[in-house]
Amino acid sequence: MEIEFLGTGAGVPAKHRNVTGIALKLLDERNAVWLFDCGEGTQMQILRSTIRPRKIEKIFITHLHGDHIFGLPGLISSRSFQGGTEPLEIYGPRGIRDFVQMALRVSQTRLSYPLKFIEIAENGVVFEDKQFKVICEKLDHGIASFGYRVVEADHEGELQADKLLALGVKSGPLFGRLKKGETVTLPDGRKINGLDFVGQKRRGRIVTILGDTRFTQASIRLAENADVLVHESTFNKNEAQMARSYFHSTTEQAAQVAKEAGVTCLLLTHISARYLAKDAIELEKEAQGVFPNSRIVKDFDVVEVPFN
């Protein structure tokens, strides 16, 4: 599981930061990519990455401001041209269906795959299967803006095959039964309890990706015990009043969310174009003063989400 940042800027594209686009790469887990927001130029950013549009399975939109959705029609069209045939699901606030369908209708775009919309109006579970659950909650951004909490199911313990082989148990059907925790009788009469040869379960990973927002308790709830929190930091600590006026967060506020939620790692994005390289370092230091494991991300940064 990896997070790749396709755009880390705020409001408008800049030479050094494109507008928001975040890819949660689940290639080992389900051979798929989930995209969070799709600002203008996202498909151009994808061309500079190893991501294949046909692998994009779901797109989660946090809110309907242009710097988070203007890249959608182009990406959807290109996915069709590039051989995409698998269904694509788009999650987002009410209005996302109208926006996409209008663009496709006016441009007379025909898709080679089914497009499904899941419009969100309330907090709760928006997707769940045996591998993952995605929970959303409304944030504080003036318009409907959601954060998403992606929870991976726990991983079953690994069968300790080396120990079994050392006991003379040959690989085969018995391994499958032992992995299920069954007690089996070997040809020589010995009985072996599978539970003695299966490692401990590993807790599934948790990734929280928030939309634009003021400091709010909803962010803390979504980020509780997350392995990675992706949080906007549009303003520095001296611009708290401006951040509140524009329904955004400061670096310190993002770090406070991470601290109160007990997350492992904080990744800061949605950086204003007025903050250049040196300024971004100062933003990072501000956050680290509250939550040490904080980092400002750049376009094309790839961050692995490790098991805790």
Rank of each mutant, 00 (worst) to 15 (best):
N18E: 09
K138I: 02
T264R: 15
V297T: 12
K278R: 15
L229F: 03
R110V: 07
L268I: 00
A261Q: 08
A153F: 00
L229D: 14
A287F: 04
N293D: 01
I118A: 03
G194D: 07
Q253K: 09
E284G: 06
G83A: 11
G176M: 04
V303A: 05
L229A: 08
A261W: 06
A223E: 06
T85R: 07
A258V: 04
N31C: 01
A10D: 13
R190I: 02
L72F: 09
E239K: 09
S80Y: 14
N225C: 02
I3L: 08
I76R: 06
V257T: 14
K25N: 11
V198F: 05
I90N: 06
Y246H: 14
I120Y: 11
K133T: 10
D196Q: 15
S77I: 05
P114H: 04
L27N: 11
A240M: 15
F5Q: 03
T183V: 09
E4R: 12
I271P: 05
N225H: 11
Q256K: 13
G189D: 06
I296V: 13
F175C: 04
I143L: 05
A121P: 01
H141I: 07
H63Y: 06
V184A: 13
R149W: 06
D212S: 15
A23N: 07
K180V: 01
R110F: 09
G92Y: 05
G189A: 01
I296Y: 06
A261G: 06
R110S: 11
I206P: 00
K298H: 13
L229I: 10
T85P: 00
Q82H: 13
Q200D: 12
N293L: 04
R105C: 02
D154N: 14
V302M: 11
N293H: 04
V100Y: 02
F235V: 03
F70Q: 14
L178Y: 01
L186Y: 01
D154Q: 11
E119W: 05
E252D: 00
F300Q: 15
E137W: 00
A280I: 07
A153E: 07
A223S: 09
L115P: 00
V126S: 08
H65I: 04
H65S: 13
A255Y: 06
T62R: 02
G168K: 04
V257Q: 02
N308L: 15
T50Q: 08
L276N: 10
K278F: 06
C136K: 12
F235I: 08
V100C: 15
V33F: 03
D28F: 02
D188T: 14
F291Y: 00
F36C: 05
G211T: 05
M242D: 13
F175N: 02
V126R: 00
D154C: 07
L104M: 14
R105A: 14
R190Y: 05
D279P: 08
V126Y: 03
C38F: 00
E304V: 06
A255Q: 04
L115D: 02
E304D: 10
V184I: 15
G11S: 15
L88C: 03
V169E: 12
R105E: 10
M102Q: 14
D67T: 08
I96H: 04
E182G: 11
G142M: 01
G194V: 15
